[in-house]
């Protein structure tokens, strides 16, 4: 079994900020399969399409998966209403995940709601991780203590300077030493991070988003333009070929 759709118990649910929620779901068989950077398709009653949400934490011993999501529209607003004890159906773990190498000092870059998937990576890398996290402002900062808790060197930047460095995450990255970069966040941030990695001559992996239907590679809904070896382009699929891509494969 690579993935399955199962009913899971919501064991804890809390708000991290005004619009960001932190859910822990009990699903031992799925947690046993999960790797950092993979995602779940979460079913919502009354909705045709499931919502893709990244796996933020994996606790194999407890058999739980953690998800941190932001209210962006109708579906995520409804998801936020679920109370501990209720059942949620998830299809997981999906996609490829980050190619974590515990021997490599790895720069983890997260922007906004792109921060949660980087935590699972940090948990495996521990003190080999340098996490550089960017947010809009102080009240949007999430998971700082979690990154510190797993042993990652943790740096924060805010757009308005109300917390940490006043400016972009890439400003903070410049002073760091690393052998590899992994990132998730808005496209402009990913491009800047890729440029930095290229400049340093280190590999860079980015996690991408696209609208999805099946989540498993059957419907071809979640197209992303990728480069072929011969320089031409083709449409790959975020759910199956990704969501994590070598930054050189992406036709930016």
């Amino acid at each position: 079994m690579k993935y399955d759709s199962q009913l899971c118990k919501l064991v804890s649910a809390r708000a991290l900020t005004q619009d960001v929620y932190d859910f822990v779901l009990e699903c031992p068989p799925l947690a046993a399969l999960a790797r950092p950077g993979q995602f779940a398709q979460i079913r919502l009653p009354g909705h045709t399409l499931r919502r893709p949400i990244s796996i933020c934490g994996i606790d194999k011993a407890a058999g739980t998966l953690r998800f941190v999501f932001q209210i962006r529209g109708e579906g995520t607003a409804e998801l936020a209403q679920f109370q501990p004890g209720s059942q949620i159906e998830i299809l997981a773990p999906l996609g490829n995940g980050f190619p974590v190498d515990p021997a490599k000092r790895t720069l983890l870059v997260g922007g906004g709601i792109g921060v949660p998937p980087m935590l699972g990576v940090a948990a495996e890398l521990k003190d080999k991780a340098v996490a550089v996290l960017g947010f809009r402002s102080r009240d949007a900062v999430i998971l700082e203590k979690d990154f510190q808790g797993v042993g990652a060197k943790t740096l924060i930047a805010t757009d308005d300077g109300t917390y940490g460095h006043h400016g972009l995450v890439t400003d903070l990255c410049r002073d760091q030493e690393f052998d590899c970069v992994m990132a998730c966040g808005p496209a402009p941030m990913l491009k800047a991070v890729k440029a930095l990695a290229d400049h340093r001559g280190v590999p860079c992996f980015v996690s991408l988003e696209e609208r999805m239907a099946c989540g498993i590679g059957a419907c071809l809904g979640c197209a992303v333009a990728l480069n072929k070896e011969d320089g031409t382009q083709y449409f790959g699929h975020v759910c199956k070929d990704g969501p994590v891509f070598d930054s050189h494969r992406v036709a930016w």
Binding site: H47, T48, L49, G75, E210, R211, M212, A213, C219, L220, G221, C222, A223, V224, A225, Y234, F235
Partner: peptide, 19 residues
């Protein structure tokens, strides 16, 4: 090759696709 994304979205009681 198919169409450029986005190719799918939800609608009330269903979805749209242009794969």
């Amino acid at each position: 090759p198919g169409n450029p994304p986005p190719r799918v979205t939800e609608t009330p009681g269903g979805m749209l696709n242009a794969v």
